[in-house]
Design a binder for these strands. Structure first.
Lengths: 182, 182
DNA sequence: ACCTGAACACCGTTCAAGT
DNA sequence: ACCTGAACACCGTTCAAGT
């Protein structure tokens, strides 16, 4: 029943990518994510995970790097600044909304995650600088609003009717804010 | 060394208020809040807490009720709507900022906390209705922004220089938004 | 009513042992 | 290099026992 003690035959071992995939799923199920539960799902010993992703904080960091890297996908030069700003914010809002538990974990240990979303805010700030003199102020407003809205969405996940209209409400609020920017 | 097993003499027992006071302090120290750690700080058995505040979720609920009730203090009729809106938002932002760990715990289990801040949003919505037809939209914008900003403040708590200017930046952003509302 | 103490099913992580 | 297994110091919570 139990696996042999030593190094597994080639191909039998667990992959870093498999761990991250499973971790993201388990995390957002919300029923108590833990290293041990994740290991059990992968039919592996808890300590096996440490070899690939480090400890709990390291695992969360690897997950968030993957999730937020996807927000920056696409060619920045292909859109005009206003459109690119909107694209980045909608995608960022979508990522936070899709993985609220990850977001909460990040906020709970901000020191460990400084810089994870730095690329996104840097690009947004540069783009905002083209449209207004108050770039930093509007970066605050837009990013904070995206965070708050996405988390509020999570808070309403048990009320499908309200949740369904949340995306439309975010887009409406975002366009309202962007219109005030110009 | 150890306390007697039975009911303590009058006045020797622990108070619900003492538990909430200590819990709020311990929670925001950020070094791993737990029922057992809280009990240890109060030099009491973990199970003693259950008698006064229920389980972990019940304790958090009791804490948040206390914290957010303070936001509504003061006489609503003494201020005009715009001023009252600003007062409520600044105070709400202050509460979230002062107790970020509490806020994160609430967002992590939103089902258990539905209604905790309902009084605040209800009053804000009524006030916003006096100033604009898009009351719900602006409620979203202003509350979400307050949440996001307060949590961002927490994320920067290890960078005192930036953190010091965060309050001023929130007030500036808030006034910017409120100006757009009229 | 209010507290203790033992117990159960969990955690994250370290360290040694195995291939 | 990559995995297991035992161990340590923790969790939240239930239940029985005590006054």
């Amino acid at each position: 029943m139990s696996k042999p003690r030593g190094r597994p035959a080639r191909g039998d071992g667990i992959t870093r990518e498999q761990i991250l995939d499973a971790a993201l799923l388990l995390l957002e199920e919300g029923q108590g994510f833990s290293m041990r539960a994740l290991a059990a799902r992968l039919t592996v010993t808890p300590m096996s995970l440490y070899h690939h992703v480090g400890d709990h904080a390291g695992l969360l960091r690897a997950i968030s790097d993957r999730v937020y890297a996807a927000v920056l996908a696409g060619d920045a030069a292909a859109e005009d600044p206003a459109a690119r700003i909107r694209t980045l914010l909608v995608r960022y809002h979508g990522a936070v909304k899709a993985y609220p538990q990850l977001t909460l974990a990040i906020f709970a240990q901000p020191a460990a995650f400084a810089g994870t979303t730095r690329d996104i805010t840097d690009q947004l700030l540069a783009l905002l600088g083209m449209l207004t003199r108050d770039g930093e102020l509007w970066l605050d407003i837009l990013v904070d609003h995206a965070h708050g809205s996405a988390l509020a969405f999570h808070a309403l996940r048990d009320h499908p009717q309200q949740a369904a209209s949340m995306q439309a409400r975010y887009l409406k609020a975002l366009d309202q804010l962007l219109a005030r920017l110009a």
